[in-house]
Amino acid sequence: MQSLLTIQGPETALFWFLAPLAVLAAIGMLLVKKAVHSALLLAWVMITLAIFYIAQDALFLGIVQVVVYTGAVMMLFLFILMLVGVDSSDSLTETITGLRPIAITAAVGFGGLMVSLLGHATLGREPIGLDIANQSGNVQGLAELLFSKYVWPFEVVSALLITAALGAMVLAHHQRTNPRPTQREQAVNRFRSGSLAGAAGLPGPGVFARHNAVDVPALLPDGTPAPSSISATLKARGDVIDSSQFQLDNVDTTVVEEK
């Protein structure tokens, strides 16, 4: 708290302007109903954090936070959300039993880990100050640490991530058990299996010149209506017109002389 108050000028103003927004967004993330809104608020929190990093002279970290987390990780989240749950009625009920205690345990465990890490890094240590850390430039200083002292953990983490990605691919990959039919085989099958009408593609809707609306079934060469010419959506809605009036038997074909 002491150090916060000593920072003067624009940085303080920036902090007191953005920090409440970030906290609000973080709380909102938990409370909003739609998953996409939640993801958006999380992205906003990440961007605010990045601004704080930049304000504290950790330029590289701030920018990378945006590129990696906001730009890539959150975007993938959004991607999945949109692909899977476009429906606005996202289910809020628990589908897997016992998820709540697991989640609470994980959260507490993660929090404890963070606290212990931060304590390990700060308690009983004197900060050496930015000037020494950034002596040869912020990026160069980070690079030196990453590629010398922390190169082993760095590589281990990357190996872990690659393993995870490969594992996800292996789990999600669907192996074909039979060879994919070629176009020729598909064509042969169409002609060999029952209906010639299907072989040439389904008929379009509309009854020749008498009625060409999409909700009127087409007539087959023998004069019967073809239900397959109507879109399944229209059928499901019950929007198909009774086609019996268009059948050849019922059509009045007598010619009336005009006087």
Partner: peptide, 9 residues
């Protein structure tokens, strides 16, 4: 690159 990746949003 960072601004571009936010622009995708």
């Amino acid at each position: 690159l960072a601004t571009a990746s936010v622009g995708v949003y």
